[in-house]
């Protein structure tokens, strides 16, 4: 018998009688009164700069300013005045991307209770982008902010693509004496645009 079969047999022999699975209780899913306010407050607490803007003008201007000084990649679709140049990174190695200063990426959904923004392979021509850049800018439309994780998982399909990630704040660590340090292995900073 293979190890696989032995393990599965042992599990089958030893597991208790079936306990039927219940639905997740509705009472866990409390809708926030003002998801954008909550989302903003949580992210600010997580050392994230949050910019709530009407329309795309400010984002467009920010992208063009960055472009003049830094090496940046922008993965934002369907906005006049912003060029999505993500595809250029598809085959780039970690060594090539290591010098990337900024990545600007638009996510399809944000979560008020924890400030997380979902990205998957659709928004990530190269999976390294939001990790290897020195600074990350995430963009979310105000209408795409839900209250909590239950609502988020109803909206996304986790296996729609090969990879997806919730990102909430810049990379950080408190492994040295519980002192919080922003900027561990991933980005040193995160800025989030909430676009109305």
């Amino acid at each position: 018998m293979s190890t696989r079969d032995k393990i599965l047999q042992a599990v089958k022999n030893n597991k208790p009688a079936l306990i039927p699975l219940q639905e997740i209780p509705a009472l866990l899913d409390v809708t926030e009164e003002n998801p954008i306010v909550k989302f903003t407050a949580i992210l600010k607490n997580l050392s994230t700069e949050v910019k709530e803007v009407d329309g795309w003008d400010e984002v467009i201007q920010y992208v063009s300013e960055l472009k003049q000084q830094y090496k940046i990649v922008t993965v934002i679709d369907g906005v006049d005045g912003i060029v999505n140049d993500g595809a250029d990174t598809i085959n780039q190695s970690a060594a090539a991307l290591a010098s990337l200063d900024y990545a600007l990426i638009k996510g399809p959904i944000g979560i008020a209770e924890n400030g997380a923004i979902w990205l998957n392979d659709k928004n990530l021509p190269n999976r390294l982008l939001p990790f290897i850049c020195q600074h990350l800018v995430l963009v979310i439309e105000a209408k795409d902010i839900v209250s909590n994780m239950h609502q988020a998982y109803r909206k996304i399909q986790v296996n729609e693509e090969g990879y997806g990630v919730f990102i909430s704040g810049p990379s950080k660590t408190a492994d040295i004496e519980q002192s919080l340090v922003i900027g561990a292995h991933g980005p040193l900073s995160l800025r989030v645009y909430i676009v109305h």
Partner: peptide
């Protein structure tokens, strides 16, 4: 997958008091 909603709400809050870890990465395909 919907059960992740329950566990990810609990995990980081219980561990360090964060609302969620900075990265919650879902790997399905290489």
């Amino acid at each position: 997958a919907e059960h992740l909603g329950v566990f990810l709400r609990l995990l980081a809050r219980s561990a360090t008091g964060q609302p969620i870890t900075t990265y919650s990465s879902h790997f399905h395909k290489p």
